[in-house]
Design a protein around this nucleic acid. Structure first.
Lengths: 163, 163
DNA sequence: TATTGTTATACTCTATAACTATA
DNA sequence: TATAGTTATAGAGTATAACAATA
């Protein structure tokens, strides 16, 4: 198929030649090369996400909410921040998930304006099934030799650690 | 697609012994480790995508369409397949983008049922700006040492090549 | 006054089903 | 008959603005 913008046609950016963290060499911008390939892999894989969520009767956004909701009670405003969306949006989102019995609202005792979200037993069980599927590595990853996988893991740890 | 299979049966991953491409070792499933980290990096980065698109007055989906639309005319049905969505959806999507002057519909001469999408000049210009932003590597990547970036690029090439 | 969550409104995205025009 | 695209409809996701309760 296509949809490939690999081979970096219009991406040959020899822009900043000199200093700084963006190394530009004879092959072009190295961070951008690596990132473009990584993005391509991820984007291809992510096309399946709506279908994956649908298998659990979740919308894509509900699946993201379920993923975020594992680590104890979460204020609705915090969830809105995680989702990078407006608070008014979270109201309807939680309405639907609460109606389905996945989460419950609980008023905070410290600040009675705040409502904390807690997973129900059903919600926690569904979340486990979801995570199992989300973190299933795609064939492109599984097919890599062990040394590549080790290197990839270590590089990603360094990248995330430096955040 | 809602019945679901094993109803609660989890996939006991790390008990898969020995052979096959999925190596299970004392540290657990190596592909899954690498993938989970990669997923986390990508997910964090992708939270900014709606805002990035909004800066160009695009919805997230319109941005994806623009990205796919660079390489010559594309049938609407093909676009629907790329987006993994229903054809009826593409009609409205293209309506709005056409109204804004980013694309035009052109009837195919081979098969007059088919309509091909072509970027306008404005559409192509906006696409260039979009791609420049999309493939801007995040700090977590830019901060990696050069050898990590080379290794990452090469590993991703192998992963994508083996698709 | 400022903040948390809700409501009202409007628009976009999405799927299903029925329709048309081609093939 | 089958396929490509449209229309109609319905529901979900999203932002803005106005609001109530609380701080």
């Amino acid at each position: 198929m296509r949809g490939m913008n690999g081979s970096g046609e219009q991406l040959e950016r020899k822009t900043k030649p000199g200093s700084g963290p963006g190394q530009a060499g004879p092959e072009g911008d190295l961070p951008r090369q690596a990132w473009t390939l990584l993005f391509e892999l991820m984007h291809t894989h992510m096309r399946n996400f709506p279908a994956l969520a649908a298998e659990l009767d979740l919308s894509p956004v509900q699946a993201h909410v379920l993923r975020q909701l594992g680590e104890g009670p979460l204020a609705m405003s915090t969830l809105a921040a995680y989702l990078s969306c407006d608070a008014s949006n979270v109201t309807g989102l939680v309405d639907r998930m609460e109606a389905r019995g996945l989460v419950v609202r609980r008023s905070s005792e410290q600040d009675r304006r705040v409502k904390m979200l807690v997973l129900t037993e059903d919600g926690a069980a569904l979340r486990e099934r979801l995570l199992e599927r989300i973190f299933e590595p795609p064939d492109a990853i599984c097919g890599l030799p062990e040394e590549d996988l080790c290197a990839l893991r270590d590089i990603m740890r360094r990248a995330l650690g430096a955040q």
